[in-house]
């Protein structure tokens, strides 16, 4: 399996780590319980699996992320563009925007991003 491929639940769990790292594993259990509705054992199982895949790291009961959130997002978005739009970014943007109108600010920001990427 590709290392960055995350199931919905794994992604949500990783988000908790990204938002709170470095985080004590006991605190992470509590967080998962309130945010995800998970039992302690579920949290530890998922944590172990993500550590084995080199996405998270659990050292002396402190959990940190090895892969950055942006990396995971990059992978996810590329998968979507590849799978559904034949890797064509313009096609993806067209579909994504659809009927939606962009605000002035959003359009500015997009323009800046595209210019930076083209440079």
């Amino acid at each position: 399996m590709e290392p960055y491929k995350l199931f919905d639940a794994e992604y949500k769990f990783a988000c908790l780590v990204w938002d709170h790292e470095p985080v004590n594993s006991t605190d992470l259990v509590k967080l998962s319980q309130t945010k995800l509705g998970w039992k302690k054992s579920t949290t530890y199982t998922v944590l172990r699996k993500l550590c084995e895949r080199g996405i998270l790291k659990n050292e002396e009961a402190t959990v940190t992320a090895i892969i950055k959130k942006t990396d995971a997002q990059k992978y996810e978005s590329r998968t979507v563009v590849d799978k559904a739009f034949n890797g064509s970014l313009p096609q993806f943007l067209t579909a994504f925007l659809g009927e939606k109108k962009l605000s002035e600010k959003e359009a500015e920001e997009l323009k800046r991003i595209i210019e930076e990427a083209a440079r």
Binding site: F7, D8, A9, E10, K12, K35, L36, G37, W38, T42, T45, V46
Partner: peptide, 16 residues
């Protein structure tokens, strides 16, 4: 459904 995540009350979602 073990890793299904809480949406609200007794509603859980999972992609599996």
């Amino acid at each position: 459904i073990r890793t299904a995540t809480l949406v609200r009350d007794r509603l859980f979602e999972t992609d599996r």
